[in-house]
Amino acid sequence: MSKTLRLSEKWFHRGLWLVALLFAWFLVGLGNTIVGDLPQVEVRRSLDDYLDPARAPAVKEAILVAEKNAREAQDALEQAQLRQQSAEASNRAARETFSNWLATRKATARPEQDQELIARTQQLDDLRQAERDALAGMEKQQQAALDARQTRERAQRELQALQDSARDAYLSALRAQELRVFGYRLLLTLPLLAAAGWLFAKKRKTSSWPFVWGFIIFALFAFFVELVPYLPSYGGYVRYIVGIVLTVVGGRYAIQALQRYLEQQKQAEAQPAQQRQRELDYDLAQTRMSKNICPGCERTVNMSDGKTDFCPHCGLSLFDHCSQCNTRKNAFARYCFSCGASAKAASGAAAGNETSLA
């Protein structure tokens, strides 16, 4: 039909489709926001909400205390290890110094150094004792760190047992919440599909068709695209079932429309050719003629030979001759392309002549 439309009419038609797409785009944005915010109508639950209220707080507190004790014990252990390493290094260095001094003492054999020998030996004993004390402190801190870790692990195991016992109730509640939210989304999108179907059947040919098609595009997008990221594991069944139902309903509508069309065509072809020609839409007739299709029966006709004036299938006049200049022209044209004479005036004059002759 676009070939027979006026230039301005073509651009207006395209602009109206742009209005339809913009309307659909804004509706899709609004719908996406609403569908995304629907989970907020439900309180978000976690596994902790289903733990034993009498035992879980004490276990969690015990874990926190054990973790704190473990950190403090680890810090103290690191300090004790540093002290033990320092004492060991001091003792080792003192023994090396004492060994060197003792070798010199034996070489010189000076009796006046006996008191210094006793003092140095005592100093070595003190360093050895300090090393043993540091080692004992380190072992004590290792035991404290081990106790803290074991206490924490016992509390964590107990908490894990509480979580395992509460997991079934939590998963059941989570599935119920998921089902409710999915129901909210379906309650929002299914009426949109129903409204889109009603608009398609009743309003798509009205002057408000851009908004009708915009809403239809939005409804289809909201159900088959926007709903997908929020579908639960069983949600795909709903989407496919609805798709099957829509396909069946649309298919039956198409079959019935085809049957109605064929019946209308039979009735139209049974009418006189002149009456059918008067009732045909001008733009539709021009479009079909440009495609070598009979405007009446919609069958293919070879119109390029310059000889075919009538449809060989239904007898409808396709080409006639101008009453002014006798030029062969399109029978559905309103004016002669050669002389510009009005086809309606010419047909009226011909009808008057026929009446006078009768």
Rank of each mutant, 00 (worst) to 15 (best):
F218H: 02
A270K: 11
S342A: 06
Y234E: 13
G183N: 09
Q275H: 05
Y253D: 06
Q259A: 11
A20K: 01
F223W: 03
I217G: 06
A358P: 05
C325A: 02
W25Q: 07
F337V: 11
F12H: 03
Q81W: 09
A155V: 01
R128K: 13
A56M: 03
L82V: 07
F215P: 00
D168Q: 14
R167T: 02
E72D: 15
V212G: 00
T108S: 10
H321M: 07
S86F: 11
G15T: 01
I217N: 05
L16E: 00
A273R: 13
Q113P: 00
V248A: 11
G352I: 11
L193I: 00
A119G: 09
F332S: 01
R83E: 09
P191T: 00
I34D: 00
F200N: 12
W17R: 12
D49K: 07
A169C: 05
L192Y: 02
I216E: 03
M1L: 07
A350H: 09
A109V: 09
Y50D: 01
E139K: 14
S90Q: 15
Q160G: 10
C339D: 04
P39I: 04
Q275A: 14
L21C: 05
Q163F: 04
A145R: 10
A130I: 04
R334N: 10
Q264T: 07
R152L: 05
I244N: 01
Q141N: 08
G197Y: 12
C339L: 08
D283K: 10
L199G: 03
L357E: 13
Q113G: 05
K68H: 10
L186M: 12
R299D: 06
T121N: 12
S165Y: 06
Q143L: 13
L231S: 11
I118W: 04
Q271F: 03
L102C: 06
E263L: 13
E263F: 09
Q123Y: 08
I241E: 02
T151Q: 15
F310M: 04
Q74D: 13
N91T: 08
G352T: 12
T247I: 08
A270V: 02
K202I: 02
T151W: 02
A70E: 15
L174W: 07
L64T: 15
A285N: 01
A94Q: 07
S304K: 13
G137K: 11
T97M: 13
L38Y: 07
P111T: 03
K329M: 15
A148Q: 04
V181G: 06
D133A: 15
Q123G: 09
N326V: 08
G250Q: 04
L280A: 15
E354Y: 10
Y230T: 05
R299Q: 14
F23I: 06
Q150K: 11
T121D: 10
A66K: 04
V228P: 01
T206A: 12
M138A: 14
F23W: 10
G36A: 15
T97H: 10
L162V: 01
L171V: 08
L21Q: 02
A343P: 01
T97S: 14
V41R: 11
L258W: 14
G236L: 05
E158D: 14
V28C: 08
V59R: 00
L280I: 14
K106T: 11
T151C: 03
